[in-house]
Design a binder for these strands. Structure first.
Lengths: 236, 236
DNA sequence: TAGTGTGAATGGATTCACAGCC
DNA sequence: GGCTGTGAATCCATTCACACTA
């Protein structure tokens, strides 16, 4: 199972002789969407699905879907399609969500508290086992949605990470604090960061970072709406 | 200024003879990051920046930065670099954030309320001018962070969109409700949707959609951490 | 010397098209 | 007839390398 994602961006520091089929980054991103769609199809009591059907729901071609899935193995049955339940199981295993992940949340502001209450995480097997903040007025308060949790001081992150075998962290602190928090988290042994602060975090290559900048998302829409209008004006 | 983004995914319905330089989608995404970084550089009192410096802060090559910026015009001065202030102004204009955008927010749950309080939107020129929900117990309540706003019924969306010239909407409702809300919003004339519901929305081609699925983000980290560990085990 | 802008070359990802299977 | 898996072809994005400019 030596699946490896093609590096893109990070220029290779070393060139070992390992071949292994490289999986495109975009294919991995789509894998999550396939899973989400399959779960919806399963809830609709459909037990089998074709690449064409799966693709059209996500606005992808059937060939794209087949190729993506083929990167990870042979899941389909010619003439039949894919077994929905089996495919869900396989994709969960590939993504690593066939087990529980303990997660810590840093930043107990508006966004942090909303994230602590977010039901979607639990459904996918992510459990928030610690909430941290620097504000002394917040430390000690109970987290409403996570009833047995109390907001702790940042200094206690390392202990929690070790005790609860935490590998993922959510960073929901102001931009100025984010780099320092990232530093502390990686030093404590966290392997992946979901960053909501509007800064580009600088971390070791062995730590994965995924950033969501809410304002940037709106900015992209602003651009798209602007250019679409131009196209409309041109009379298409 | 007939900038057009390359379509990817949507197969061409028509083949007009218009050439125009196609801008890669990834370049547009990076444009927002350049802007964010430039604003940070400006706050650090630096007035000029090279493609190399801008790139290294974002882990991109200098060539990438130059090519991206060149898609939109000639901004740099050989031997000098880019004028930070001028470049900020130009990028804001390209992205359309050189003016205010009125935005509506649908869904007054945990996430919706956190988004209403998010300072990042205001800083970029996005103003929330209406908050909507279906829950009768919420309708009429004041939005704490937006003091002159009251939560309204979904039925009033169309009026607000018309009166306030709203083009963008944030969808923070449960998955089951999202498609219906998207439908109402587009019918009311909204041109771009920022969707937080874990579903793929089906809308007219003239409406832009940007989706953020928080659980999917963690799922991607789970995958990356999993494969990274495999690589570590292999002894790199 | 330091640095941009850009054609040409490279490297990846998507789509095509079809052999093979149910 | 319907559908997968996959090499080959195409399309697109990134990187290289260099002419050119301050």
């Amino acid at each position: 199972m030596g699946a490896r994602v093609t590096p893109r961006g990070t220029r290779g520091e070393q060139g070992s002789g390992m071949k292994s089929n490289n999986i495109p980054v975009p294919a991995v991103r789509r894998l999550s969407l396939y899973l989400r769609q399959l779960e919806s199809i399963w809830r609709a009591d459909q037990r089998t699905v074709s690449s064409k059907q799966l693709g059209s729901a996500l606005k992808l071609t059937d060939a794209q879907v087949r190729k993506d899935l083929a990167y990870f193995g042979q899941f389909g049955h010619p003439g039949i399609g894919y077994d929905v339940e089996a495919l869900i199981t396989r994709i969960r295993k590939i993504l690593g969500t066939d087990r529980l992940w303990n997660v810590v949340l840093v930043g107990a502001g508006n966004l942090g508290m909303a994230l602590s209450a977010h039901r979607g995480f639990g459904k996918k097997g992510f459990r928030i086992v610690g909430v941290f903040d620097t504000d002394p007025r917040k430390i000690g308060l109970h987290v409403p949605s996570l009833d047995d949790l109390v907001i702790q001081s940042i200094d206690q992150i390392a202990d929690t990470v070790r005790e609860k075998d935490v590998r993922l962290a959510i960073v929901a602190v102001p931009a100025e604090a984010a780099q320092d928090i990232a530093q502390r988290l990686t030093a404590a042994g966290v392997r992946g960061l979901l960053n909501f602060a509007p800064v580009s975090l600088d971390v070791t290559a062995s730590v994965a970072v995924s950033s969501v900048d809410l304002a940037v998302q709106l900015e992209q829409l602003s651009f798209q709406v602007g250019t679409m209008t131009l196209i409309d004006d041109a009379g298409e």
